[in-house]
Design a protein around this nucleic acid. Structure first.
Lengths: 202, 202
DNA sequence: GTCTATAAAGGGATAGAC
DNA sequence: GTCTATCCCTTTATAGAC
C-alpha cells in the first residue's frame, strides 16, 4: 500500500506536475525537474522510461483524475449552489494549476495525437462535467437559469484558475480565496444591484 | 507612411504575434515562423536583428498597444455598460489571443527581466486599466456595485479569451460571440433569476 | 537508483555569398 | 532581402558502470 508514498518516483511526479502546470510542456526541461530534485536528468528514465512525454501525460492525467475526485467531493459537501461553487473554487486553488487553454493550444500539439486526444477527453470528463452537472442540477431545482452549463463550467474554471495571474503579475492586496468568493457572488447575483432583497440601492 | 504596409517585416511580425499568442514563447521556434513564411530561419535576423526575444517583445508590446486602442474605442462606442462590455468582448475575440496567465507564468520567466517587467507593466496599462476604468465609472454611475474593478476586469478578459478553449478543445455548437454575450448577461444579472423585472419566476 | 558518458537532434545565432 | 553554411549550446534519449 504505497498510496501516499513519498518514494522517489512520487517526488518526481509531484514536481513534474507542478512545473508542467506552471510553465507548460515546452518550457520545462527534464534538467529542470531533475535539478530541483538533486539528481541527474538521465536518472529520471529509471522512474519514467517513456521520457518527457510519458511523464507529462502521466502527471496530467493523474492531476485531472484527482481534480475529478476533489471537485465531486467539494460539490457534494456544499449545502447549496453557492457553497458548492465556493468549495469547488477552494479545491481548484489548493491544487497545482491546470491551465486548460495552454494545454489545448500549446501543450497538446507538442505530444502524440493519441495522447493528446485522450487528455482532451479526460479533461472534459474530470473538470468540465462535474461542474456542468451541478449547474444542470441547480437549473432543474430552479435555483438558476442557465442556457449553457458546459460553457459556464468552463468559464468558472477559467475564472478561478485565472486568479493566479489576476493583476497581471502584480501583487494584489486580497487572497485568491477572497477574490474567488467575490467572483462567485457576481456570477450568482450579477454586478447590477438587485432591487429585491432589501429596499433597493444603498 | 507604411502604417498598414504589407512588407516582409510586417508579415513576419504578424505571423510571430499569432504563433506566440497561440502557443507561447517556448513552443514557437524561429524555424516555425520562417517556415510558414516560406523563408529560412536565418533570414528573420535581417528584419529582427535582436533575434527571438526581440521578436517576442516587439510583437507582444505591439499587440498590447493595439488592444488598448481597440478596447478604448469599443468602450467609448457603447451606449451603456452592457454594450461596452459586448464591444470589448467582440474586440478581444477579433484579435490574436493574449493569454495573460501563460504570459506571466511561462513566457516572462524565459526572457530578460527588464523586458518582462516592462511587458507586465504594459499589459496592466493596456488590458486591465481600460476595462477597470469603465467598471469604476459604471460604479460611480450606480449601474453596478463592484468592490474589485481591477479583479473583475482581469476576470472579464480571462473569461472572454478562455472562450478559445471552452469545451476543452472540443467543437461547440455556438460561436464565441454568442457565448460572450451569454456570459456578459450572467456577469451583469447573475445566474439566479431576478424576481424584480416581471412578476418573479416564470 | 543514481551516476557518467555520449549519441542524435533541435534550436538560436553569426558570417558571408548572391 | 534572402540564401547557404556553420558554430555552439541545449535537450532528449540510450548504454553501461557503480
Amino acid at each position: 500500500m504505497e498510496s501516499e508514498a513519498n518514494d522517489a518516483r512520487t517526488r518526481v511526479l509531484n514536481l513534474a506536475e507542478r512545473l508542467f502546470g506552471e510553465r507548460g510542456y515546452a518550457a520545462v526541461t527534464l534538467r529542470d525537474i531533475a535539478g530541483e530534485l538533486g539528481m541527474r536528468q538521465a536518472s529520471l528514465y529509471y522512474h519514467v522510461p517513456g521520457g518527457k512525454e510519458q511523464l507529462f501525460v502521466e502527471v496530467t492525467e493523474r492531476g485531472l483524475l484527482r481534480h475529478q475526485a476533489g471537485l465531486e467531493a467539494a460539490i457534494a459537501a456544499g449545502a447549496d449552489l453557492e457553497a458548492r461553487l465556493k468549495g469547488a473554487a477552494r479545491w481548484l486553488l489548493s491544487q497545482p494549476p491546470v491551465n486548460i487553454g495552454r494545454m489545448v493550444h500549446s501543450d497538446m500539439p507538442a505530444i502524440g495525437k493519441e495522447h493528446a486526444d485522450r487528455l482532451i477527453d479526460v479533461s472534459f470528463q474530470c473538470l468540465l462535467l462535474p461542474l456542468a452537472r451541478e449547474l444542470m442540477a441547480a437549473e432543474a431545482r430552479r435555483e438558476i437559469s442557465s442556457q449553457q452549463p458546459v460553457l459556464l463550467a468552463a468559464s468558472f474554471i477559467n475564472i478561478i484558475e485565472g486568479l493566479w495571474s489576476a493583476g497581471g503579475g502584480r501583487p494584489v492586496p486580497v487572497t485568491n480565496e477572497e477574490m474567488a468568493d467575490e467572483l462567485i457572488r457576481v456570477l450568482l447575483d450579477g454586478m447590477r444591484p438587485r432591487p429585491s432583497k432589501e429596499s433597493g440601492v444603498e
